[in-house]
């Protein structure tokens, strides 16, 4: 009756559900074959992270976090997906499935990784008063699955999305560990993200211009 006995309050449950949605959308990104749906899933994931930030702001009464929530909503839910979608549309290369492995294998691998992440973090003697510690484990799982996404998919869009969602995982972790982190640090994170968007946008364009494809397979070929 362990779980029933220490039945956590409905609030932490809600936070857990949102953190779970972040992880599930990471899984969905891993398996979805269309770049467009990947970008939309990223938008959804960012929305969940923003909601989580708002949740912490409301429960812990940290005013700054409302600012962070608004900023991350505008940037990650609206601007970044729009920019990437426009890039993908301009490229006009039909990006087909770029899995190196079968989808079921990938999902199983990702399950193993997230179990690893959740358990390793669960062992840490960390206590947080802003969010349940489970959210930290889930954030670790998000980061590991994002790595997997970057490794097993070989098109530029997936790699960009993998990198961006990595940042989402880090955001969730920072919300658990240091919700009161000064706004300036969090904004620096977001600024990093913007730089990454520019870099990846450039990469996408240059790569497409040179090899007429978004697949990174072309990079394996040596040119004399």
């Amino acid at each position: 009756m362990a779980a029933l006995g220490t039945s956590p309050s409905t609030l932490t449950d809600a936070a857990d559900v949102i953190a779970l949605l972040v992880l599930l959308s990471e899984f969905a990104m891993l398996r979805s074959s269309l770049s467009r749906s990947q970008v939309r899933l990223y938008g959804f994931q960012s929305l969940c992270v923003s909601v989580l930030a708002g949740f912490v702001a409301a429960t812990q009464h940290i005013g700054e976090l409302y600012g962070l929530m608004g900023l991350s909503f505008v940037l990650k839910v609206i601007v970044v997906p729009m920019v990437i979608l426009r890039l993908v549309r301009e490229v006009r290369v039909d990006v087909t499935a770029s899995h190196r492995l079968g989808v079921a294998t990938m999902v199983l691998l990702a399950i193993v990784l997230s179990v690893f992440g959740v358990f390793v973090v669960g062992r840490l003697p960390v206590h947080s008063h802003s969010l349940p510690i489970l959210a930290l484990g889930l954030a670790a799982a998000v980061i590991l699955v994002a790595f997997l996404l970057v490794i097993v998919r070989n098109d530029v869009v997936s790699q960009a999305i993998g990198f961006f969602s990595l940042e989402n995982g880090v955001s969730v972790a920072s919300l658990v560990l240091a919700a009161g982190l000064p706004l300036i640090v969090e904004v620096a994170f977001l600024f990093d993200l913007l730089v990454a968007v520019v870099v990846f946008g450039l990469l996408m364009r240059v790569h497409q211009g040179r090899s007429r494809t978004l697949s990174t397979r072309a990079l394996d070929r040596l040119r004399g």
Partner: peptide, 26 residues
């Protein structure tokens, strides 16, 4: 041959449920 993907999703959700219980109980 894509049905396994569907089953992988069901498995993912079920595994996550157990994971959540393990950590959530703390």
């Amino acid at each position: 041959f894509k049905i396994t993907e569907f089953m992988a999703v069901a498995f993912l959700l079920a595994v996550l449920a157990v994971l959540v219980l393990f950590l959530g109980a703390r």
